[in-house]
Structures are given as C-alpha cells and as structure tokens.
Write a protein that binds this DNA or RNA. Structure first.
Lengths: 175, 175
DNA sequence: ACCCCAGTTGAGACTGAGTCGCAATCGCAC
DNA sequence: GTGCGATTGCGACTCAGTCTCAACTGGGGT
C-alpha cells in the first residue's frame, strides 16, 4: 500500500544522505495505515502499544522530515499543539472543525482559493502557505448543542459566567 | 480615548458582578494606548517597565475577560502561543503574515466571507468563528528574500538540509 | 465613613507540548 | 565485515499558559 508516498519518502531521505531506519519506517507505516488527522502523542501511544519501542523525540524528529518532504502537513487545529495530516500530492483542502465533538471535516472551494490569490496580489504578498479553518458545530452535533442552549438560556449568573469564561477559550478568531 | 470600549468593558464586568480593579484598568489602558497586535508577555513587560506591578497570571486572566467581552480577539498566529488583537465592533478581518519580518497585515474580502457561508451550508455546519491566514513574504521583504534564495540555490547538501528542517517548522498548512 | 466578603491578586509550583545534548547504537557504502 | 556519520532513547530542559492559595481590595450595604 501507499507505495507512492513510500517512494517519495525514500527518495527524500536518500537525496540528503539520511537513513531509512526501522523507527522511521514504523512511523511511516502506522501513519499510512489509516489516519487522516492525528497528533504526535497519538502516534507514540499507538506505536508503543504495537510493541514498537520508540521515543517521543524520534516521533517529532521523523514528523519533521515527513512535513519537510511534503508527505504530511502540520496544522494548528484546536487549542494546543499541532495536528498532522496526510497530504495527497497536489491536493489541498481547508478545515471545518466541530467544537462539540472535535471532528475535522475537509473542504475545498476553488473560488476561495482564487480570491486569496487576488488578495495577495493586491498587497504585493507572496503566499507560501495558508490555513483556513471554520470552527462551529457540525451537522451531527447541532441538535445536541441546541438542547443544551435551551437549558442554560437564563443562567447569566456569576457562577455560570466563570465557567463560560473557560469554555470560550476555544474560539481563535471571532468574526 | 477609547471611551466606547471602556464603557463596554465596564458594563461587561458589572453585569457579572466583577470588579474593575486597578490592574484590569492598567492592562486595558496599555492595550488601547496603541497596540493592534500583541502577545501576553509583551504586555507584561510593558506594564512592568511602566512601574505597574502586575503578575503573569493576572495578564492572562484579564485577557480572558477582554476576549470574552468581545473587545479583544485571540488568534493563533505564528509558532507558539496566542496573539491578541483589538477588535473594532462589528468589524472582521483575516491575516497576511510575513515569515520574514513577522509583520501582520489585515485584510477583508467580503466575497470570501460569503463563500465560507456557502461551504457551511453545504455541510450543514454552524460556524461560530473562523481563522484564515496566509503566510508568505510581504512586499517589503520580497527583494531581500529573493537575494537570499540566489545565494543558497545550490546548497542542497546535508548540513544545509538539517538547518532547513528547523526553518520549515513555520508553515502551518501547505497548499 | 466603615464594614464586610466575594472577587481579585501575586508568587510560585505545576502541566503539557515540544526540544536538546549526548552517549550508545545502527544503516549502509565500501 | 568494517567504519563512521546518522540516528536513537533518555532525561533534563524550555516555554506558554494554568492552577492554588493565602493575603488583599473594591464597592454595595449600613
């Protein structure tokens, strides 16, 4: 499987005199086993439970290589740290992220992409990458969220407010 | 100055039985003195040098309030941590971020906004916020960046590669 | 003007994600 | 098979942000 990316990775290593170690291979395999989006520690746990002994530092180091080689993308989704995702060559997408269940939905809208290019041109800006994420409530979670909304609707008291302060942390860029 | 936001903040505190302490006022003033984009520790240093004694915890706590009240926005720009920005009521903008000099340029493109709405509709997604950032090289830095590019153009050797690995960390979502 | 207490503060310990240095180990070209 | 540069694991470290708690304070009630 995934022999295409395998070849890219191999060549990438070769070209800069790096070695294809068993750890790198294991990480690569795990990654391409099925995961679209994942985080570094997730991989660590997964590999560890699969008998494979690997250190956290190596996870990060290898992930760096994969990102650099263009096989994997690094995104800042959610609160802390990075998330990684497999990149299909030449494809690009942006993200819808559910605040409720954490699900990440990918979308691609060519019209937005070309408008971005226009914006860049207007400012004389040379774009190298972009990240575009909408946060909210996904289709599946909307009923649940609405229900909760009702229950809490007249809880504007101080106790509730304190809690809400914390909850609100997850909104990156209000519109 | 900024009496409009001042009033909003005051009312926000009042409504939930919170106090307008001298620390909160000082932070607020500093923030509205001139800064469009800033980070938490920047404020800390600035206030400390201005004789005002304030703790890091308080900075963060107060920033939480300001974000919650809608006066300030919290964005994940760049590598680590958050950046904050003043929000003019009802206005919204996205960001162009220069990898070279770190400058943040704001832009607003109504057509992109409405396309976003369409995307949400398509997926039955209820958007609460979004963040949209393009990273690259700004107008001012392009000549400099191009020059450097030339010098390094045939440095595909291992030593350089190692360094480049580190450098590349700053690209969030490759397109 | 004074009291009172919920809300607030500062200090510093703590956390979690990610990084670094280094001695031991491993890939792979010869 | 050897040799050596690349790689690994470990644990210590950093950095941003959070938490705890005892001491303090703003401001409504009197």
């Amino acid at each position: 499987m995934s022999s295409r990316e395998q070849a890219i990775f191999r060549k990438y290593l070769e070209r800069r005199g790096l070695k294809l170690t068993s750890e790198r291979q294991a990480l690569f395999d795990e990654l391409f086993a099925r995961h679209e989006h994942f985080e570094a520690d997730e991989l660590l746990v997964r590999l560890r439970t699969k008998h494979k002994k690997i250190s956290r530092a190596t996870i990060y180091r290898t992930l760096d290589l994969l990102v650099d080689s263009g096989i994997v993308g690094r995104v800042r989704i959610g609160e802390s740290g990075y998330r990684y995702e497999r990149l299909r060559a030449g494809e690009h997408h942006d993200h819808l992220i559910c605040n409720e269940c954490g699900r990440v939905i990918e979308f691609f809208e060519p019209a937005i992409e070309s408008l971005q290019d226009e914006v860049c041109e207007k400012y004389g800006f040379l774009a190298i990458s972009h990240s575009h994420q909408l946060r909210g409530i996904c289709k599946r979670c909307r009923p649940r969220a609405a229900r909760r909304q009702n229950e809490a609707s007249h809880a504007e008291d101080a106790a509730e407010a304190a809690a809400s302060r914390r909850r609100l942390r997850s909104v990156p860029s209000p519109r």
